[in-house]
Structure formats: structure tokens, C-alpha cells
Design a protein around this nucleic acid. Structure first.
Length: 388
RNA sequence: GGGGGAGUUCCAGAGCGGUUAAAUGGGGCAGACUGUAAAUCUGUUGGCUAAGCCUUCGGAGGUUCGAAUCCUUCCUCCCCCA
């Protein structure tokens, strides 16, 4: 890849707001990228290793109607590696997804693989979870790798601050993330996209659960004038009220006219609450991972499909679901697949859960445009979160 | 017909005189999972009027302070030789 330069003020992404709720900070917008547009609020299925686990692209597009998916820098760098990705012509062509992609930077792995890495101001040295080999990640090469992956939205390299976390650590962690951000921006700005579509860089707010640090971090991030801004370091074990408090605080500081992305969140309730606080974008492994483990989110509540009670329930998985699996397979059949450890069970559950999550954010958008989002959210959430 | 082996809690299978309601798997039941080291992990799995008691290791007797473990006998199954 060559070192190039960008036209001043060029923004590879547009964001517009079509409407907002009357009794909350929820808004309905549209993000336009070179690979397609995204109506917000949006849920982005996680496709860490270049695949939304157990789901075909065809299902993602036609049934689930996902408008953007994730990839992960750390995982794709280790496998298949940047040589294969560039040879393929980028991740879009490699995994046959012609809509937008967002790549996480590996900042979450700084947290989740903390036992396997050494963090310094320079960057992070990871010991591969695959073969133990050592790999240095810096703000600079993380930008380069994300250029080679070719995501439409790339994330700044950060440290997802753990929880609980003492104040001193939270300060140092946020400072590292901020220093890294400047290096990310510098490198990103001096390099060019490789595959003919524009890319944008989202910075990430940290600050753990401390209001002053969150505010400081949000102001720092906001000052960069990025195309969109992310909130990281939440949903790592803190109480929900704390997560909402931090989200509300940060949203009040981040620019109104740019999309806000709450990383790693969450449950259906988390998502609706955060939309009300002004968040536009979400991603979470919950619908796929929990789906593979037998947990179904439905319009009627939450189901553990492995439970004996579904053994002879021949009703649809979700009578109100819009995805083809919802009405074509029974709960009894899906339970059988899980009990028998048949892989189709994981596939059906993943398609269903993602279909449900995308349905949920589409509903949210409709109610925001109608102006009754807050009341709809309050009456809907208890039903969605009840255990069946 | 002759010789040998085995029957243990839902299943397989340890245990071979007391620390055994009985290892370990599996199965069953339940729980967890939030920018994916996860098609993963954890708990539990005889009964009860539960810090205690009752029933349980093919059946019935017996030895012993004490038996799933030793003896007698019966039943059932498996293998080898005719």
C-alpha cells in the first residue's frame, strides 16, 4: 500500500438526521458510505473472523436485512493475514459482503486477552491465542491493517478499560487511548484507502465509570471532528444504571450531528435504553453467541430453547418474527437440534436472533419518526426481557 | 454337556471390609454469556418431616462391631471348548 494524502475536508461518510423523539434523545438518521447506506438506529452483527458465525451472507442480506457488519483487526490479522486479505482485494470481496463493514481495532482484545499481552505507551504486544507467536500492535500498524482489510468504518486503537478499575488506572488508560488516537489520526490521514471506496475513522471515548474522566474523554474525542464517535469501555461488568449514566453523559458531549456508536451493547433492553440516550449504532456478540448457546430473543420474551418445556411445543419459534426461520421451524424441532448438538440449531438460532435485533432497531426507528419512541420503549421492554 | 467371566445409582464404568449415597465419562435438568480465545463454560443429578434420617450396588440367606466389597445358594447375561 502506498502512502498518500487526502483532500482537505473530504469526508468519506455522510450522516443526516430525519427525525427525533419528543420525550427522549432518540433520533433516526441515515449514514451513507460508498458501500451503501445505513438507517439508524442500527444494530451491526459481529463478524469477528470475517464471518458472522453460523450465518450466510445471503441470510444476512435477504432475511435479517443487516445493513452493516463487523470484522476484527486482531483476528483477521492473525487469520487469514493481511497478505491474503490484500490479495483478495479486501474483506468485502474476500467474504462476499458488498455492504458496509466496520472493523474493531483490537482494542477489545487488549481487554479480553489481557493475560496474553503486554501494554506500553508504544502499543501492545499480543501473544497469539492460536500459536503463541508474538505480534506488535501500534496505533500506526493497526491503521495500516485496517486499510488492508478495507472496512468502511475503522476504529481507533484503544484500550477497553476493564471494570472494576481504580481511578488511577482509569486515568492512565484514558490518557493512553487519547495519545494513541492522535497517532491513529496522523497515520490514517497520511494513508489512502486501497480498494476504491472511502474509509472513515471513529475515535473511542474511555474513562471507565468516572464522570469526570468520561466527560474529559468525550470532550477530547469530540474535538477531533471525526465522522462518527464511539463509546467504549462499557458493558464490561458494570451495573446497567452506571452504563446508562455514562452513556447519557458522553452523548451530551459528543457532537449531535455525528453518529454515536456504543460499542459492545447489548441486550434488547440495553439497546432501547441507549437509543433513548442518543446512541445510533450498536454491536454485540449476544444474538450470535447466546443464540449458539440456545438463548433466543423473541417478540414474546427470552427462551432457553434447551429447556425441557419446549420438548413438544410445535408452535413457531417466534410467531411475530419476520425471518424465514421464525415460522418454518417449531420450538420443539429447534430444541431437538440443540439437544442433539446439530449445527443447524446454531444456524437457526443465529438467524432468528439477528433477525430479531434488526427488527427491534427498525421498530425503534419507526417509533422515533412517529415521535412516540419513549412510551413504546417503556411498554415493550418488559415483555421482550421476560423469561418464557 | 465341560470350562471361564460378569451382574453397581438413568447409561457406561470404577470401587473390592469402615474416610461410600458410592470415582470418572455420558445422558438428564438448570444457569451463565454484552467492541467473540466460546457450536463454549458452570452448577446439579436416590428420597425425606433435610446440621439428621431412610432406601440403594441382581434375589435370598449368612459371617462381622461394621458389607457394594467376604461366604452359601438361587436367578440372569457373556465368552471359550464339545
Amino acid at each position: 500500500m502506498g502512502i498518500g494524502y487526502l483532500c482537505a475536508n473530504f469526508d468519506g461518510m455522510e450522516f443526516s438526521i430525519q427525525g427525533s423523539d419528543t420525550k427522549s434523545s432518540a433520533r433516526a438518521g441515515t449514514i451513507i458510505t460508498d458501500n451503501g447506506s445505513i438507517e439508524t438506529p442500527i444494530f451491526m452483527p459481529v463478524g469477528t473472523a470475517g464471518t458472522v458465525k453460523a450465518v450466510h451472507q445471503r441470510e444476512l442480506k435477504d432475511d435479517i436485512a443487516a445493513s452493516i457488519i463487523l470484522g476484527n483487526t486482531y483476528h483477521l490479522y492473525l487469520r487469514p493475514g493481511t497478505d491474503i486479505l490484500t490479495e483478495a482485494g479486501g474483506l468485502h470481496r474476500f467474504n462476499n459482503w458488498n455492504r458496509p463493514i466496520l472493523t474493531d481495532s483490537g482494542g477489545y482484545q487488549v481487554y479480553s486477552l489481557s493475560a496474553r499481552r503486554k501494554l506500553s505507551d508504544e502499543g501492545v504486544v499480543f501473544q497469539s491465542h492460536i500459536d503463541g507467536s508474538r505480534h506488535r500492535f501500534t496505533p500506526e500498524n493497526v491503521m495500516d491493517i485496517q486499510r488492508m482489510i478495507g472496512a468502511d468504518i475503522v476504529m481507533a486503537f484503544d484500550e477497553c478499560t476493564p471494570y472494576p478499575c481504580d481511578y488511577g488506572y482509569a486515568v492512565r488508560s484514558a490518557e493512553i487511548t487519547h495519545r494513541w488516537l492522535d497517532r491513529c489520526i496522523a497515520r490514517f490521514d497520511e494513508t489512502m484507502p486501497l480498494y476504491g471506496h472511502q474509509q472513515v475513522l471513529f475515535p473511542i471515548v474511555q474513562g471507565s465509570t468516572y464522570r469526570d474522566l468520561r466527560a474529559l474523554s468525550a470532550e477530547t474525542i469530540a474535538s477531533k471532528g471525526a465522522s462518527g464517535n464511539a463509546i467504549g469501555g462499557l458493558s464490561v461488568g458494570e451495573p446497567h444504571e452506571v452504563m446508562y449514566e455514562m452513556t447519557q453523559l458522553v452523548c451530551s458531549i459528543l457532537p449531535f450531528d455525528k453518529p454515536r456508536y456504543l460499542m459492545g451493547v447489548g441486550t434488547p433492553a440495553n439497546i432501547l435504553e441507549s437509543i433513548a440516550l442518543g446512541v445510533d449504532m450498536f454491536d454485540c456478540v449476544m444474538p450470535t453467541r447466546n443464540g449458539r448457546n440456545g438463548m433466543l430473543f423473541t417478540s414474546e420474551g427470552i427462551i432457553n430453547i434447551k429447556n425441557e418445556k419446549w420438548r413438544d411445543d410445535f408452535g413457531p419459534i417466534d410467531p411475530n418474527g419476520l425471518v424465514f426461520v421464525d415460522c418454518q421451524y417449531s420450538r420443539a424441532y429447534l430444541r431437538h437440534l440443540f439437544v442433539a448438538k446439530e449445527m443447524l440449531g446454531s444456524m437457526i438460532a443465529s438467524v432468528h436472533n439477528l433477525g430479531f435485533y434488526l427488527w427491534l432497531v427498525r421498530q425503534a426507528r419507526e417509533h422515533i419518526l412517529k415521535g412516540d419512541f419513549a412510551s413504546w420503549k417503556n411498554e415493550t421492554t418488559p415483555r421482550l426481557m421476560q423469561r418464557l
